[in-house]
Simulated scan of single mutants.
Amino acid sequence: MRVGIDVHMLGDRSGGNESFYRGILSGMTPDSGDEYYLFVNSGVDVTEYEDRFNIVYFKKNSSIYRNCVELRKLCKKYNIDVLHTQYYLPFFAPCKTVVTIHDLSFEHIKDIFTKSEYIKDKILVSHAARKADMVVTVSEFSKQDICTTYGTDPSKIEVVYNAVDSDFTVLPKDAKIRSEVRNKFGIADDKYIVCVSNLQPRKNIPRLIRAFNKYSDNTGLDHKLVIVGKKAWMYDEIEKSVSDSKDKVILTDYVTKDELIALLNEASGCVYPSIFEGFGIPPLEAMACGTPVAASDIPVMREVLEDNDLFFDPMDEDGIATAIKTLLETDCKANTEIVGRYSWKKSADILKQVYKKAQLG
Rank of each mutant, 00 (worst) to 15 (best):
A288S: 12
L25H: 03
V138K: 02
T152N: 06
Y49S: 09
F53H: 02
S26D: 14
E237D: 15
W344K: 06
V228G: 00
I101F: 05
L284V: 00
V40R: 04
E140W: 02
P206C: 09
V170R: 05
D349C: 10
K122L: 15
P273E: 03
A262Q: 00
F311H: 07
P90H: 00
C195N: 04
E337D: 15
D145K: 09
I187L: 11
I227C: 00
N41H: 11
L83W: 01
Y118P: 01
I119Q: 10
A128P: 01
L351R: 00
W233C: 09
K120A: 14
W233E: 10
Y355V: 09
G4H: 07
C95K: 08
D103T: 03
M9K: 08
K325N: 15
V56P: 00
K176F: 12
N17Q: 10
E70H: 05
Y272G: 04
K60V: 15
I112N: 00
A294T: 01
G278W: 00
L208K: 01
P30T: 07
I298N: 12
L74Y: 03
D307W: 08
Y49K: 07
K176I: 08
Y215A: 02
V135Y: 07
G11E: 04
V242T: 06
E50Q: 14
E158L: 03
F91V: 14
E70V: 06
R178C: 04
P154G: 11
D34H: 14
D31N: 15
I324V: 14
R210C: 02
Y192Q: 03
I109W: 04
C95H: 09
K345D: 12
N335Y: 08
K59P: 00
G319Y: 04
Q86N: 13
E180C: 06
Y272Q: 03
K77V: 09
H108Y: 14
Y355A: 09
M1I: 11
V138M: 06
F279V: 02
D111H: 13
S343H: 12
L25C: 10
I112R: 01
A93Q: 10
F168G: 08
F91G: 06
